[in-house]
Design a protein around this nucleic acid. Structure first.
Lengths: 329, 329
DNA sequence: TTTCTATTGTAAATCGATTTAACATATGAT
DNA sequence: ATCATATGTTAAATCGATTTACAATAGAAA
């Protein structure tokens, strides 16, 4: 690949002059500017970003790491990130952990080697390695991820409140027995949603005995758990799933057992994960929606703020969830 | 951030020694190695990848650019890329064009400034700018993208054959009037699929008069076109959609009009785009599946091959599609 | 003519690593 | 004691850009 010195040599000028032309700076005579531009064009010369970054200490890039890129849940989040990044003049690159904590940590480390100006990391499994790696890097934001006592930029969702409202909504609809299918208990968001559920039940004088079903964020386990409950004839009047995928599993178990929703069992989810083929999905799920687009935007905003304002204190922004009524309650 | 010279200074050795420790090379006394490692650990020192890349001329990274990251169609493709990249020891970063040709070109350019060792670009709109930018970079693979007469690494699908077989399958099922809903005519894959359709119809002595409905790769336009056909009572016995999303639009129009599939109108798609919530989707679409996982793997294989074998000739790999029977034919 | 200023250009330092060549020191064989 | 070899260490070059400090030139002002 052709370099700046080769361009300079061919133009019989110093590389400093070429650099000035590249960066549209003054201090170049019109004749030289024209000559240099012609040679640049002739060779399709593009300055090497690596070399440039080394001296400017800037990559103009934000790195995003998520658990897996193969999850439509993130679509709005991605779009929010890119939207704000474009207005703030940053490029965005995404890395996927392929549902593997080690790979995710590897990519956080990859970014933290100075390849980007800032990192956005999504995830709330607080024991995960990637938090440690993140903390060695000066500019980052975690989304959904919190660590007790640690002070960094965070974009959070008020899971406790959301779960409380979801549960309260079910109670107000008149359901008496309500089960909560938790998310993976390794994740702090699962614990928060569980707490919200418990609090709502207690505040309304309802029992939570046997009401907590340990599941995860995937469809399969919730499906199995619900299937077993139905078999034992111990299913509740309503289910609050800690994640939309779990809710879909519950509905599948119901459907297979010949039970209807919300007729026999009401189901509410959590996430606002709108499947890609929205119109083909039946029935539409009632869920607590997270404002993922706004969260993406906010993550970039916080990140760029700390990157460009030396010494500024980190911030936590917490978003509220929104009840989206579907056809399952 | 701490640098190699600071580590060297603190250990009272030259930076060359520290570099050797970092890269596990010989030529360092056990005592020095230990001392240096201790200081590295103490400061959480991580070598700067930008500086390293500048001298090694390696980033150990493959950049992937697609039209939009917000499309479950790519999931298997992404996974195939990462799968092969892991075995060949490359990192993978993704950039999304947000359904905008300019943004897509911007990211191809971004990568081509030397930020990655090789680029994988997905897309077949041959007049798109990104082909020109790609060609200034020595190492790249296009997927689905072809340019007549140009010689570079390509991963293709035999669209003509796939469309021919899809159409033939419908004909063999006994359907007489078959319409083809094309993809966006800017894309070469659309033209190829159209050709396959035409050829199959002609080979079986069927007319294609009024049988070609110009649509795009999205659901909405196919829906509208089909709706209009139904209104005029001019719909065919079977539809071959150039993309699965279009097939879903056709089915939606049918459903709304009270028509059933395949009872009233059979529908076959093209892509093998399995929606995320597979089990919730009704009915399951018959489609020509593209082996996206394998295509991702192959793209990486071709790319790394040209990166690591100087002077080697570019290759084109063409994959066959596979008829996946659903419930719509 | 002299002095000052503005403009244009270049040499050299810099960013943070790796790599090469040179050199010093120690070890062992002859 | 001498030479060859192996080992450990460092200085300096390098990667490809930007940036700083300064030199040269030209034109304006005194």
């Amino acid at each position: 690949m052709v370099t700046i010195s080769q361009i300079a040599a061919e133009a019989k000028v110093s590389s400093a002059l070429v650099s000035r032309v590249l960066n549209n700076k003054s201090g170049v005579s019109p004749e030289n500017r024209e000559k240099i531009l012609a040679i640049i064009k002739k060779h399709n010369y593009v300055p090497n970003a690596i070399a440039r970054s080394l001296v400017t200490q800037k990559t103009a890039t934000i790195g995003v790491v998520i658990g897996t890129i193969c999850d439509s849940f993130f679509f709005d989040f991605f779009d929010g990130i890119q939207d704000m990044a474009e207005t703030l003049d940053y490029n965005v690159v995404f890395c996927s952990g392929r549902n593997n904590a080690d790979i995710k940590a590897k990519y956080v480390d990859y970014f933290a080697q100075g390849r980007v100006d800032g990192i956005i990391a999504y995830g709330s499994r607080y024991q995960d390695l990637f938090f440690d790696i993140l903390e060695r890097f000066p500019f980052f934001v975690t989304v959904e991820g919190d660590l007790p006592g640690k002070d960094f930029n965070k974009v959070l969702v008020d899971n406790l409140d959301g779960a409380y409202r979801a549960t309260t909504y079910l109670i107000e609809q008149g359901y008496q027995t309500i089960f909560h299918f938790t998310g993976d208990m390794d994740y702090s968001v699962s614990l928060e949603r569980l707490d919200g559920f418990k609090k709502a039940m207690q505040d309304h004088g309802l029992s939570i005995d046997n009401a907590i079903i340990t599941a995860d964020f995937e469809e399969e386990l919730a499906y199995k758990r619900m299937k077993k409950l139905i078999a034992k004839n111990k299913h509740p009047q309503a289910c609050f799933a800690g994640a939309d995928k779990g809710a879909f599993g519950i509905i599948r178990a119901l459907t297979e057992a010949g039970l209807s929703t919300p007729g026999d069992v009401a189901v509410i989810g959590f996430d606002g994960d709108v499947p890609n083929s929205r119109d083909m999905v039946f029935p539409r799920l009632t869920t607590m929606r997270q404002p993922l687009f706004e969260m993406g935007k906010e993550a970039v905003r916080l990140l760029v703020r700390t990157i460009e304002t030396p010494g500024i204190k980190p911030i936590t922004t917490t978003f509220d969830t929104e009840l989206v009524l579907g056809e399952t309650t």
